[in-house]
C-alpha cells in the first residue's frame, strides 16, 4: 500500500529523507523528539549554531534525524565530545541527546564531571529503564524487581535516581517529565535551552518492545496510562526524594534552577587575562 506523505510544519527541522525512523511502535522517542522540535521552534534558536550530539542506543539515533550539525559518537562519550565541540566554538548551542544506559552507565563518569564543571550544554536523557537497542538488558535505571533479559529473576541492583545524580553533581537546571507530559516537557526543554550552564532534562518513556512486555505493560499505551495515574508533580522538591520504584508514583517537575558561573565563561576570562 502506498502512503502519501504530507508535509509537516516541523519538517524543516528534520532530515526528511531519513524518515521513517527506526523506533518501535509505542516507543516514547518520537514524542520526545516532537517536543524538542517544538521547543526549538518556540525558542527561536539559530539552527546554524545548534549542534546535537548523541551516544549509542535508540536515543542515540536522535542526532541522525535532526537537520542541524549532528554527531553520533561512541557509546557513553557524547558528553566529552560535546565538551570539545562547545569549547572550540563558543558560539554553538550544544545539546546532548542520549539514553539512560549511555549517559549514566558507560558514560556516567563524563556526566558527573561535565555537570561539576558546569559546561554550557543541555543534556536530554530519555530513560526507558533498560538497554532497548540491544534487546532489553538491565540498565543503571532499571527499578528494583523489574525483569530484563539479564535480570530474568527480577532486578536486584539499586537504580540511579538521575535527577538526584545531576543535582548532586552540580547541574544548574534539573527537570523530569514523562513522555505523556508533552506541554510541560516542551516548556522544560525551552527553559533548559535558554539556561546558561549544564542543564538536564530527564524523560521517563515507554519501551514496550524490550521492557514493557516483560513487566506487564506490553504496549506503549498501557505505560502512558500508568504515567497518567501515577505521575505526581512536585516542583522544587529535593530530587533525593524523587526515587523511582516499580509500581510506585513517578515524581516529576522542575527540581533545580540556579545560577552558577560556567566553565566556558571562566576559560574565556582566563584566556583574556593570559593574553594581556
Amino acid at each position: 500500500m502506498e502512503i502519501e506523505a504530507k508535509s509537516h510544519p516541523l519538517d524543516r527541522y528534520l532530515r526528511a529523507e531519513r524518515i521513517p525512523h527506526i523506533w518501535c511502535p509505542g516507543c516514547g522517542l518520537g514524542t520526545v523528539l516532537n517536543c524538542f522540535l517544538h521547543a526549538l521552534e518556540e525558542t527561536n534558536i539559530n539552527l546554524k549554531n545548534l549542534a546535537v550530539v548523541s551516544g549509542i542506543g535508540c536515543t542515540g539515533r536522535v542526532a541522525g534525524y535532526i537537520n542541524v550539525d549532528s554527531y553520533h559518537t561512541t557509546h557513553g562519550r557524547a558528553i566529552p565530545f560535546a565538551t570539545g565541540l562547545k569549547l572550540a566554538n563558543p558560539k554553538l548551542k550544544v545539546v546532548v541527546f542520549s539514553g539512560d544506559g549511555d549517559l549514566f552507565a558507560i558514560g556516567g563518569n563524563h556526566f558527573i564531571h561535565a555537570a561539576r564543571r558546569n559546561i554550557d550544554m543541555t543534556v536530554i536523557c530519555v530513560n526507558n529503564y533498560n538497554y532497548g537497542m540491544t534487546g532489553g538488558q538491565l540498565g543503571p535505571t532499571t527499578p528494583l524487581e523489574a525483569r530484563t533479559t539479564t535480570a530474568p529473576y527480577g532486578n536486584i541492583e539499586h537504580p540511579f535516581n538521575l535527577c538526584h545524580v545531576a543535582a548532586a553533581s552540580g547541574a544548574v537546571y534539573v527537570a523530569r517529565w514523562t513522555s505523556l507530559h508533552v506541554r510541560r516537557l516542551k516548556e522544560s526543554m525551552k527553559e533548559a535551552l535558554n539556561k546558561k550552564g549544564f542543564s538536564f532534562v530527564e524523560i521517563i518513556a515507554p519501551c514496550p518492545t524490550a521492557f514493557g512486555r516483560r513487566n506487564k505493560e506490553p504496549t506503549g499505551l498501557e505505560t502512558l496510562k500508568y504515567y497518567k495515574e501515577h505521575s505526581v508533580i512536585k516542583h522544587g522538591i529535593d530530587p533525593a526524594e524523587a526515587d523511582i520504584e516499580m509500581g510506585g508514583d513517578i515524581i516529576v517537575g522542575k527540581f533545580v534552577d540556579i545560577e552558577k558561573p560556567t566553565f566556558d565563561e571562566a576559560v574565556h576570562e582566563l584566556i583574556k587575562k593570559a593574553r594581556k
Binding site: V53, R77, T83, G84, A88, N89
Partner: peptide
C-alpha cells in the same frame, strides 16, 4: 576525567 574523555573531546574540538 580520563583518557576516554580526552580523546572524545579532541574529536569534538576538531569538529568545532
Amino acid at each position: 576525567e580520563d583518557e576516554l574523555a580526552s580523546m572524545a573531546a579532541i574529536l569534538g574540538a576538531s569538529w568545532g
